[in-house]
Design a protein around this nucleic acid. Sequence first.
DNA 1: TTGAAAGCGGTACCAT
DNA 2: ATGGTACCGCTTTCAA
Lengths: 344, 344
Amino acid sequence: MNSGKLGNRTFVTIKDVAKTAGVSIATVSRILNHTAGVSETLEARVREAIETLGYSTNDAARTLKGKNSFSIGLIIPDIQNPFFPALVRSIEDTAHASDHAVLLCNSDGDVEQEMRYIRFLHGKRVDGILLIGGQQSNKSVELAESLQMPIVLLDRRVKGKKLPAVFLDNAHGGRLAVEYLLACGCQKIAFIGRRSLSSAEERFNGYCEALNDKNIEINRKLIQSQPFTFDGGYKGTEALLKEKVEFDAIFAGNDVMAFGAIACLQSHGMNTPQDIQVVGFDDIWMAKGYNPSLTTLCQPVAEIGQAAVNLLLNLREKTEPKVLEMRFLPQLIIRDSTMKKSKE
Amino acid sequence: MNSGKLGNRTFVTIKDVAKTAGVSIATVSRILNHTAGVSETLEARVREAIETLGYSTNDAARTLKGKNSFSIGLIIPDIQNPFFPALVRSIEDTAHASDHAVLLCNSDGDVEQEMRYIRFLHGKRVDGILLIGGQQSNKSVELAESLQMPIVLLDRRVKGKKLPAVFLDNAHGGRLAVEYLLACGCQKIAFIGRRSLSSAEERFNGYCEALNDKNIEINRKLIQSQPFTFDGGYKGTEALLKEKVEFDAIFAGNDVMAFGAIACLQSHGMNTPQDIQVVGFDDIWMAKGYNPSLTTLCQPVAEIGQAAVNLLLNLREKTEPKVLEMRFLPQLIIRDSTMKKSKE
DNA sequence: TTGAAAGCGGTACCAT
DNA sequence: ATGGTACCGCTTTCAA
């Protein structure tokens, strides 16, 4: 028995099962795939053979012959970015729930890397790609399209490309953040972020819209362009301090920047929320545990991941290339980095 | 051209290349694999055909016929545990560097899940498994062995199993932590952790050893068994406070617990490091940014991940089932959650 | 209902 | 050096 081999390992094949059960391999295949009526007698015999032999289907053969590989590629900038783990987790759970493997690839947001991975995943014949792109991912997307690979965009838009995508309404989040700070009594709200990514830009737009709504003029000095890191938040705050602009609140592009901002304030003898109020974005796990705990915008990560996988898997069924876009809403989570000031 | 199909997608196959180049598929295969001498003329023609046609090799076919699948399975409890992302990143970088895909699976530390994933990965014919196991992973390991799947243990030992493995010397880390706290002038050092995982148990052992070395008796009341979470750290500290045991330092099982501990202390009006000094373990990214920044033990995650992948990939070459174990040393990183007290 | 057999896209052995 | 071809494990059509 154990006719199959791969390297120095041996595998039970469909042939072994067929022989032990005394049927043809076609019958075994049918039973495995519930693909045609098979008599109960044979079915029982085959199932027993499968059991005793410990047969497991060979996905490589199935892929070679069949329609899909039961795997998807997930390209993200860096799993070490604390926003991604929760999203990745929900993607994997969803994918595995329909028996699809997830091949994780870290691109560092670099187009060349992305394209390398797309080619790699093409060789693996993945059923599709979930992409959280970088700034120039339009090239990657074009490559994927030319390779006829189904692709779904996640979290970030790609300029000039209309594609199936799952997003958060970042502008709405920005608006919520600023509106809440205003409601808290803040007047001079600074923004630390960067307009490099679509998501980041939208958050900034939300910030502007909320201020416009209240007829508050936007003060350029209150806007600091910094990378979305702890250090970025720290430096942006330092810059605000140096410029001697007055400000009473900071809306940070994400939670990690918010932590950096708070740390900077503290090292300059200012407290959050008493002196300066701070709002972050994403609601990563640490937002609750930071000192002070962080008011922030919570993304429905589980739903987003799930929607993205389902969208991708449905894509290959439909022949018409439906461009679907799903948009989710963030939710304001109020914690200790903000406070309602009594009118002075 | 484009003879291959998969679903409604089409692929360029080796046959297409052969036809365009006017050679046999055997020749193309040889060139692809540098497997035998081929005349420069033909090689040039073939390479050009590959280029113009945009051929990419079909891994499913290659796997079916050949020795490996160029993929490995990575089973971890949960990517959302902030210690894992950095490790996973280094694993993926290393694997991809030798053209292997990484199939990520989250088991939640549950044996049943682990076994489900092992079977799944077996079907995918992965070249091996990297396992960060849970408490009862001996069953999973046995399954993998019975399936003849190369397996390397990571980070945590599995009871009763001697296997290729890559570990941190956790006991050494525990010792370093406690020795440093003693050097800082602390006398009553509490431990919050849990002895469920081998890594955790070893950290505790290091704690005991360091105290024994100095002939300090171990006070049971100073030891709090708690899960390795923020809340665990918080509750463990609360318990210490309630028991009214005197203590001047806390060695937490990991960084997240340390954050919880510090938060709890603060909410009880005690400051770190002035009142209670705290040391964590792992040096996750937030350790530097927390308030106060955390003294902790840094794991050489990049090296560990790299070693694990290489060990796994080498495993299938060797026929003799060498049991290799690699042990890495943690490094004490001193930050603001500890301080040298002047003698009182 | 069941079986025989033709491939899927490669690799590698055997000829030439 | 090059080509022909058997075969990897499975799915699916065609006959029986």
